[in-house]
Computed example of a mutant assay.
Amino acid sequence: MLELVFWASVGLLAYVYAGYPVLAIAIARVRPRATRKQPITPSVTVIITAYNEEKDIALKVRNVLALDYPQGRIDVIVASDASSDGTDDIVRGLGIGGVRLLRVEGRQGKTACQNAAAAAASGDILLFTDATTRIATDALRAMTRNFHDPAVGCVAGRLSYVAQGDDATGRGGTSYWNYEIMLRMAESEIGSLIGVSGCLYAVRRSAYRDIAPELISDFVVAMLVREQGLRTVLEPDAMCYETTLDHPDRELAMRVRVGMRSLSALASQKRFLNPFRFGAFAWQLWSHKLLRYLSPVFWMLALLANAALALQGRYAWLLALQLALLSAGLLGFASPRLPGKSRLLAKPYYFLLTNLASAVSLFRFLRGERIVTWTPQR
Rank of each mutant, 00 (worst) to 15 (best):
L193Y: 11
S217Y: 12
R62G: 08
A151S: 10
G170A: 12
E251C: 03
S83F: 06
L290D: 01
V256D: 01
L65N: 12
L318Y: 05
G313P: 04
A324H: 01
S84Q: 14
P248K: 03
A24K: 02
I27C: 11
L323R: 03
I77V: 15
I25N: 10
G191C: 13
L331S: 09
V61P: 09
S84D: 12
T244K: 05
V10L: 15
R103H: 13
F365I: 05
S84E: 09
P42F: 00
A117V: 11
S160H: 05
D124P: 01
F147E: 02
R204D: 11
G86W: 08
R343E: 06
H148Y: 15
R100D: 12
R343D: 03
T45N: 02
V258Q: 13
S295F: 00
V46H: 04
P296V: 01
R231C: 14
D75H: 06
L291V: 00
H148D: 13
A118Q: 03
T144L: 03
R92G: 01
A212E: 14
M185Y: 07
I74N: 03
E54K: 13
L366Y: 07
L127E: 08
G109H: 07
D167T: 14
A156Y: 07
W286A: 00
A79Y: 12
I47V: 15
E369M: 05
A121H: 08
L245Q: 11
P39F: 08
I47M: 10
V64R: 07
P296K: 04
L330G: 00
R92Y: 03
Y176V: 14
L323A: 04
R36G: 02
H288K: 02
Y17P: 00
A320G: 01
G229P: 15
A18M: 04
G93K: 03
V220M: 02
L234R: 01
A120H: 12
T132G: 10
R226D: 09
I57K: 12
L126A: 14
A136H: 15
A307F: 06
M300P: 00
I74W: 15
V91M: 08
L266C: 01
V203E: 10
M300L: 14
I40L: 05
I57Y: 12
L159E: 04
M223I: 04
M260V: 13
L183W: 07
V10S: 08
A26D: 12
D85Y: 04
A50F: 12
F278A: 00
